[in-house]
């Protein structure tokens, strides 16, 4: 059954593990928010949803370029494939830069990991995701060098998982409550 999925089957085992881990973190975040609505409303009011939204569009566009790269690779257009993967990587770096700028702004406001329950979970969730973005960038760079269709499908599958997790995290953390 794993062999019917795009890319290396072991990557799908990893993706499944990540989806379960992030799923548990999301449910923990949602349930804690339901138990402490005032703390979460006050915390959320100090976030910048425009930056969060901007990062969503950046990552979605990166995922789109990665998907186009797989199509280009299947059509044996090597130069186009490399350019598209490079674009996906650059946008991944832009996401990380925006996230770091966001953390720096919070630090200037005197907000940290131990401010309250909301911000502990905020930094835990977004920080854990940021680590995956960095790992995803490394994986994309590695598969771009190799440039075989199977490697590219494997690498982009991980990248789409990172993208999917953020698309779910953005409304949960920044918007809903």
């Amino acid at each position: 059954m794993l062999s019917d999925l795009p890319g290396h089957p072991m990557m799908w085992v990893l993706i499944l593990t990540e989806i379960v881990t992030f799923g548990l973190l999301f449910i923990t975040f949602a349930v804690t928010g339901a138990v402490h609505p005032e703390v979460f409303a006050a915390g959320r009011a100090q976030l910048d949803p425009t930056l969060g939204g901007m990062n969503t569009i950046i990552l979605i566009t990166s995922g789109w370029l990665a998907a186009l790269a797989v199509e280009a690779c299947a059509a044996e257009r090597r130069r186009r494939t490399r350019l598209l993967v490079a674009g996906a990587i650059l946008l991944g770096c832009a996401f990380a830069a925006v996230k770091i700028a966001e953390y720096a702004a919070k630090r200037r406001m005197g907000i940290g990991l131990e401010t309250d329950m909301f911000f502990t979970l905020y930094f835990l969730l977004t920080g854990f995701h940021l680590m995956h973005v960095v790992l995803g960038i490394v994986i994309l760079a590695a598969v771009a060098l190799d440039a075989s269709l199977e490697s590219l499908k494997t690498g982009t599958a991980f990248w789409h998982m990172v993208d999917l997790v953020w698309v779910v995290m953005f409304p949960l953390v920044y918007l809903v409550g």
Partner: peptide, 20 residues
Amino acid sequence: ATRTWALLVLLTLLSMVTGH
């Protein structure tokens, strides 16, 4: 993929406007 990208951007903007 391109149609999906356009849909994703649109839905993200809709979510941002709703939240804003």
